[in-house]
């Protein structure tokens, strides 16, 4: 048949290395290693464990968002609302902690002395708030057939507006000290920040889900050809709602992480989270057109801008160059993806 008349061989299980090479993850990994080596060579202090720890902790919430965004983009969607949902979830979590754990005799102290019961309730509320926005996004995209770009642009505005309405535009303070001291900047085994442990856990679990489970396979199939998925009986609408709900839940988690990290709600600080997460996913080799991509790539895609930013500071270059560099690399990555696709269609 068309020249290739070799019988179908039982394919040997692909090694990790060969799989990485075929998905371009290897190449961006090489770039990441080169960057780290370069900055360390110029300024040995860069590889100092404290610096590495702070890079990791500062980007933990972004990694959680980017892992969720990988699912969304693989399904050929996009979610612009994540920054606003993050803020909204943080606000809800904080408000619940204050309402349940605040000291009525000393309102200015907020819930600073509240215990784990109050903290747990607040975290749960924050996660549910994120999940709710995710379900709304999913319903808009899958059932109402509003294009994801517009649906999530709408919920971006709504979630942000709702956050300002709830807070009156001022950040909520008086977050339990126990939350900040553990999740916010506490260390596991005196070495790894809690934030990093949680983000890494999310990345590992969801990376396995995307690569090895039916949920992951349906995500690829829908991103690749939704009509084909529908025709073989996959419930495409329900699956898309789940994907956006997962993104919402992860935004809620990132909101709680950010709340703990900064001890306040930072309502004006997340307007570019969506761009950062999308950039990380695309840098990591996931196609914006859906159907292909890996969480491994996304992890590296989060680390490259993070290393650039920190590296520029360390070697004394204006750190705003990081934005310029990442923007350029992002455009190049999408351009190459386009070229590949066009070549494939011609074949």
């Amino acid at each position: 048949m068309s020249g290739t008349s070799k019988a179908l061989p039982a394919r040997p299980p692909a090694t990790l290395a060969s799989r990485l090479a075929t998905t371009n993850v290897l190449w961006i990994f090489v770039v990441l290693v080169a960057l780290v080596l370069f900055f360390t060579a110029v300024q040995p202090n860069f590889a100092n464990p404290l610096n590495i720890r702070s890079i990791a902790a500062d980007n933990a919430a972004l990694l959680v968002l980017a892992v969720g965004m990988t699912f969304v983009i693989v399904s050929a969607g996009i979610d612009l609302s994540i920054g606003s949902v993050l803020i909204f979830s943080g606000v809800v979590a904080a408000k619940v902690m204050l309402a349940v754990g605040g000291d009525p005799r000393d309102p200015s102290a907020g819930a600073a002395d509240a215990g784990w019961g109050v903290i747990g309730l607040g975290i749960l509320a924050g996660l549910l708030a994120g999940l709710a926005w995710g379900v709304i996004n999913g319903l808009l995209v899958a059932k109402a057939r509003v294009p994801p770009l517009i649906a999530t642009l709408g919920t971006l505005g709504m979630a942000l507006g709702a956050s300002y309405l709830l807070t009156g535009g001022t950040d909520v303070r008086g977050i339990p000290r126990q939350l900040a001291g553990t999740l916010g900047f506490g260390l596991v085994l005196n070495s790894v920040p809690w934030l990093v442990v949680i983000a890494a856990g999310v990345a590992v679990v969801l990376g396995l889900v995307l690569a090895y489970t039916r949920f992951g396979r349906y995500t690829y199939a829908i991103g690749s050809n939704p009509e084909a998925a529908r025709r073989v009986g996959i419930r495409v609408d329900r699956h898309l709602i789940k994907v956006y709900a997962l993104m919402g839940l992860l935004s809620g988690l990132a909101g709680v992480m950010s709340l703990a990290h900064f001890s306040t709600t930072t309502i004006s600080g997340h307007s570019a989270d969506n761009l950062a997460a999308i950039a990380a996913v695309v840098l990591g080799g996931t196609s914006l057109f859906g159907g292909s991509g890996r969480v491994t790539g996304t992890v590296i895609g989060v680390l490259i801008p993070a290393v650039l930013q920190s590296g520029f500071v360390t070697i004394g270059v204006n750190p705003y160059w990081q934005n310029v560099a990442v923007g350029a690399v992002l455009v190049a990555a999408v351009y190459l993806d386009q070229v590949r696709r066009r070549a494939r269609e011609r074949a």
Binding site: Y220, A221, G223, S224, E227, A228, A229, R231, V232
Partner: peptide, 11 residues
């Protein structure tokens, strides 16, 4: 067997 084959090209 659909005319457009209905295959997921990325799989």
């Amino acid at each position: 067997v659909y005319q457009d084959l209905a295959l997921a090209a990325d799989l």
